[in-house]
């Protein structure tokens, strides 16, 4: 059993959407260690393109990005793959946007900067729900 199998028996495919490249890079590495295959997307449009190419078990979406409003991206996600759970990342104090996202069908939300363990726990929950 590899280290990653402690977290997930089967590798999970995660779409990580955030325009902060350094953050995405380190999260991707850490998640890879935990058996999560991260496909990074640094903007809303990149995320949509990635979603066209393949399926994901879950998506983590930063609501505050430069090119598109996170909520808009979420709506498109819901249209394209309604079954994919989406976990939103919001800044502190913008819970209002997160609540709005919940109304549009997001799975859950976390405030940034978030704890990796917390995030992985949410991903686990999301994957279980999907199953």
């Amino acid at each position: 059993m590899t280290v990653g199998e402690k977290f997930f028996k089967e590798p999970k495919r995660l779409l990580l959407v955030d325009d902060e490249k350094g953050y995405v890079a380190v999260l991707a590495k850490r998640m890879a260690k935990r058996n999560i295959q991260v496909t990074p997307a640094y903007s809303g449009s990149q995320a949509i393109q990635a979603l066209r190419k393949q399926d994901f078990d879950a998506a983590v979406l930063d609501l505050k990005m430069e090119d598109m409003d996170g909520i808009e991206v979420l709506k498109i996600f819901q249209k394209m793959v309604p079954s994919m759970p989406v976990i939103m990342l919001t800044g502190h104090g913008s819970e209002k946007a997160a609540r709005e996202g919940m109304e549009f069908g997001a799975f859950d939300y976390l405030t940034k900067p978030c704890d990796l363990e917390e995030l992985i726990e949410k991903i686990r929950q999301a994957c279980e729900v999907r199953r």
């Binding site: 902060e20 350094g22 380190v26 999260l27 850490r30 940034k112 900067p113 978030c114 990796l116």
Partner: peptide, 13 residues
Amino acid sequence: NNPVAIMVEEAGW
């Protein structure tokens, strides 16, 4: 927030 988050994650890494 973002640089701090990266720093923390890098430490985690």
